[in-house]
């Protein structure tokens, strides 16, 4: 099975976290060395990594901070305080992804170890490594589930990028003799669909066609799509999800044209519904300029919400990974 670099875009080696710079893919496969929480926050905030990559960065940052530095102290109270400070910085890096739900797991394990007179550092390493191993196994299981959902003759629309899972599922399905077409939305303004999704599906030997974000209505009305598969950045207790901007209108159109919407989710009870999720509003210049050059008239303004909420009523099927959030 083809494994996309986007499936596991960050790893720790010798006290350095290497994070795939997703803004450079497919032109370059380059990993950014991150040595501390400050660097971790920077790669998240600057969107060098996103989606599942953020999850990996958050967990692995605790391993970094477990290296030479504050956690080497024998003072367990200081260790806990440092971990809490690290968590706080990560939690505030971007608003929509549930960073606090991830950091709480590590800090909670450290506090539990402290309460049981165990070693906080050992607890952090065990928790993070155990968690990562479990997530990897469950994501591979989900890839199998997606491959089973893909049927011979399917024409699948996807949006933004689902961190390697769809491409891996496509490679499995193709190996099983299924003929499947994919349409990938461009996903303005960062164009993750045009860069990442098209690239990794092509690497998986899948047939993929790139369309503008505004072409989804034409595709659906013309009967060119029979399934929609997207990821999600956050889930609410009622099943609502937040995902890349554009997901809501895709979901509405899919329902209108009777096309099933399949969402890859990580269930969480952190918030009751999608309305409780803060939506990040990013810098207008990310729409108004490209490569540092202004695209539209000087007086024209821009507005860039980074995510949409998709109400659970519009979701046909959620393929879940229970990440313990």
């Amino acid at each position: 099975m083809f494994e996309s670099p986007l499936f596991w875009p960050a790893y720790v080696k010798e006290d350095v976290l290497y994070v795939l710079d997703e803004t450079l893919v497919p032109s370059k496969i380059k990993y950014i060395p991150v040595k501390n929480v400050k660097g971790a926050v920077a790669v998240i905030r600057d969107m060098k990594t996103r989606a599942f990559g953020q999850f990996l960065v958050v967990l692995n940052t605790f391993l970094l901070e477990n290296g030479p530095g504050p956690l080497r102290t024998r003072d367990q109270v200081r260790k806990i305080k440092h971990l809490e400070a690290v968590a706080e910085q990560l939690n505030n890096s971007r608003p929509t992804f549930p960073f606090a739900e991830v950091t709480r797991i590590v800090v909670g394990a450290a506090k539990k170890a402290f309460a049981n007179e165990g070693d906080v550092s050992v607890a952090v390493v065990k928790t993070v490594q155990g968690f990562l191993a479990g997530i990897r196994a469950r994501r591979l299981q989900r890839v199998r589930q997606i491959a089973d959902i893909l049927q011979d003759g399917d024409s699948v629309l996807t949006h933004c990028n689902v961190s390697g899972e769809l491409a891996m599922a496509a490679s499995l399905a193709i190996a099983e003799g299924k003929h499947i077409k994919f349409f990938a939305t461009e996903t303005r303004p960062y164009m993750q669909g045009a860069k990442l999704t098209v690239w990794e599906l092509t690497q998986a030997n899948a047939k993929v066609t790139l369309v503008a974000d505004n072409a989804i209505g034409s595709l659906m009305a013309d009967g060119q799509v029979n399934k929609v598969i997207i990821g999600s950045d956050r889930s609410a207790a009622n099943g609502d999800i937040a995902n890349k901007i554009g997901s809501y209108q895709i979901a509405v159109l899919a329902r209108e044209f009777g096309i099933p919407l399949i969402v890859l989710t990580q269930p969480s009870r952190g918030v009751a519904s999608g309305g409780d999720m803060p939506i990040e509003i990013r810098d207008e210049n990310e729409i108004l300029a490209f490569n540092g050059k202004r695209i539209f008239g000087n007086k024209v303004k821009g507005f860039y919400p980074g995510f949409d909420v998709v109400p659970h009523q519009l979701i046909t099927k959620a393929i879940e990974i229970h990440a313990g959030l």
């Binding site: 939305t185 303005r188 303004p189 997901s247 209108q249 729409i287 007086k299």
Partner: peptide, 21 residues
């Protein structure tokens, strides 16, 4: 719009749904 003296705001084509929602 600028000719009419109105300063418009541009969005990407995938952002309309958010505004409706």
């Amino acid at each position: 719009f600028l000719k009419k003296g109105i300063i418009p705001t541009v969005i990407s084509d995938n952002m309309a749904g958010f505004l409706f929602f």
